[in-house]
Computed example of a mutant assay.
Amino acid sequence: MGSVGDSYDNALAETVIGLYKTEVIRRRGPWRSLEALELMTLEWVDWFNQQRLLEPLGHIPPAEAEADFFERDNQAAMAA
C-alpha cells in the first residue's frame, strides 16, 4: 500500500491497540497489580499471534498459515 511508517501502519497499530483494550483491559479488569496485567498481556499476544482463527486464512491460526506458506515456498524452490 504505502511506505513503512505511513498512515496505513498507524491505522493498523491503532486497530490492534483498540482490540487489546476492549478484550483485555476493559473485559478482564480491574487489575490488582501491574504484574497481573503484564501476564495477561503476554497471554493475549500469544493468543493473537499463535492461536486465533482467521476466516480469510481458512479458519486457521496465523502461525499455522505462516508455516504452511514457508513449507510451500521451500517445496517450490526445491522443484525449480
Rank of each mutant, 00 (worst) to 15 (best):
S3L: 14
V4C: 09
G5A: 06
G5R: 04
S7E: 15
S7Y: 13
D9L: 07
D9M: 09
D9F: 10
N10E: 15
N10Y: 12
N10K: 15
A11K: 11
A11G: 07
A13C: 12
T15D: 10
V16F: 02
V16I: 08
V16W: 05
I17R: 15
G18V: 09
L19I: 11
L19P: 00
L19F: 05
Y20R: 01
Y20Q: 01
E23T: 00
V24F: 02
I25Q: 06
R26M: 13
R27E: 15
R27M: 13
R27G: 03
R27A: 14
R28E: 02
G29H: 03
G29D: 02
W31A: 04
R32I: 06
E35N: 09
L37A: 08
L37G: 03
E38S: 12
L39M: 07
L39R: 13
M40C: 04
M40W: 02
T41V: 04
T41E: 04
E43I: 10
E43C: 07
V45Y: 03
W47Q: 09
F48E: 05
R52C: 08
L53D: 03
L53W: 08
L54I: 14
E55F: 10
E55P: 07
E55W: 12
E55Y: 12
E55Q: 15
P56D: 06
L57Y: 13
G58T: 04
G58N: 04
H59W: 15
H59L: 12
H59D: 14
I60E: 03
I60G: 01
I60P: 01
P62L: 07
A63C: 06
E64C: 02
E66L: 12
N74Y: 13
N74A: 15
A77G: 07
